[in-house]
């Protein structure tokens, strides 16, 4: 158990600068986007320069409105770190095999450590994802402050926090307001990561054949999920269909973990 924590700490430490960099990047891009948007809006109504046309009353611009209008800015701030995280789902394994001194040798020889290694890498990925999400929430608070400071008094209007979160298309996916939706989105995400891990371990155990098997395995899992969701066609009540979907989901998670552990303890080659 202590090996798990040590390995997890190792994975987090290896990534800490990149994580910090992604957080800084996201915050800066979002701050700039919000500032630019407010500035543009104020100019449109000539507030700043005092060139306001008489008789044209400016509409107030609440924080939620601002967020609704910086979709592309937010997209830019989120897409890059997201891509980096997705790449790292692969790299977190492959980086140990690259180079002149593949670290995989050491990691795989840690006494009683292979299972811990798998879960350390898995939880590290989850930790990075959730930290970025949490950081995004903090960023929203910071942006709210920025809004309060930058917006001219004339345009200010209060808005609910949940309105602001609902205004962004990206958040509807990444930080949905309903907790059940959050669980579904990230449950599926977790399953996807586990499937990718299984695929990576298949490739590291069987090379080219492993990639083929991984593709088939992925197809099987996707098919099962689609079938599960099609169980709506069966004469079952909604709560029962949910149970079916959850069961299939659980089986797939268990299957992915079992396969990955079998591979990493006995079939992986360096």
């Amino acid at each position: 158990m202590s090996h798990y924590f040590k390995l997890l700490a190792l994975e987090v430490r290896r990534f800490r600068y990149i994580l910090a960099g992604m957080m800084a990047y996201a915050l800066i891009v979002e701050c700039l986007a919000v500032a630019r948007e407010i500035h543009n809006y104020a100019n449109r109504y000539g507030i700043k320069e005092g060139t306001r046309e008489p008789g044209v009353l400016p509409q107030t611009y609440s924080f939620a409105d601002v967020i609704g209008n910086v979709q592309s800015g937010f997209a830019l701030a989120v897409v890059l770190p997201l891509a980096a995280l997705l790449a790292y789902v692969l790299l977190i394994w492959y980086r140990d095999w690259f180079g002149r001194h593949p670290f995989a040798f050491r990691l795989l020889m840690v006494p009683g450590g292979r299972i811990s290694l798998y879960f350390a890498k898995l939880t590290a990925i989850l930790l990075f994802i959730f930290s970025m999400l949490a950081w995004q929430l903090v960023a929203m608070a910071i942006l709210k402050l920025e809004y309060a400071v930058v917006t001219p008094e004339l345009l200010k209007e209060s808005s609910r926090f949940t309105d602001a979160m609902y205004a962004s298309e990206i958040f509807k996916l990444l930080l949905p307001l309903r907790f059940t939706q959050f669980l579904i989105n990230y449950g599926m995400g977790l399953l996807a990561v586990m499937l990718v891990f299984a695929g990576i371990l298949l490739e590291r155990s069987y090379r080219i054949r492993g990639i083929v098997i991984a593709a088939l395995y992925l197809a099987l899992n996707v098919t099962l999920l689609v079938l599960a969701s099609m169980s709506i066609e069966l004469p079952l009540y909604p709560s029962e269909t949910v149970a079916v979907c959850l069961t299939i989901f659980g089986l797939e998670v268990a299957g992915a973990i079992w396969l990955s552990l079998k591979l990493i303890t006995g079939k992986v080659s360096v």
């Binding site: 040590k6 997890l8 987090v12 959730f130």
Partner: peptide, 28 residues
């Protein structure tokens, strides 16, 4: 110190998400 980053990130994530979903609870 090795565990500091892990603990920090874990606590941070849980706290922020708990506040968010606790507060947003059914969007009020």
């Amino acid at each position: 110190f090795s565990y500091a980053w892990v603990g920090l990130l874990a606590a941070f994530s849980i706290a922020a998400l708990a506040v968010y979903y606790g507060y947003a609870s059914d969007e009020r």
